[in-house]
Design a protein around this nucleic acid. Sequence first.
DNA 1: CGTATGACGTGCA
DNA 2: GTGCACGCCATAC
Length: 86
Amino acid sequence: MKSFQNKVLEITTNIPKGSVLSYKEVARLAGSPKAYRAVGNILGKNYNPKIPCHRVICENGKIGGYNRGAKEKKKVLKEEGFNFKS
DNA sequence: CGTATGACGTGCA
DNA sequence: GTGCACGCCATAC
């Protein structure tokens, strides 16, 4: 089962600590630069705690959202040393 | 197969 | 700078 979803999740899982990728970047790495929509859709519906989805942010530097609350996402990113826009 | 949804992105007024 | 509309792709029903 190597679907686009699996790629996105795998890529997200491989994001090193302190680094963040935009939805568009993840989509590009997954093989479809224009599938950033699908990336958001997948991560949004994905509740797997093993996936550091908080390291995937908007292209404009915004958080966008988080399955556990954008607040947590901001907190985690800040803890990892990545300061983003409020 | 067609429609609806979503944590987006870009363009234009 | 802000707000609205459209487009794009994958998944669910």
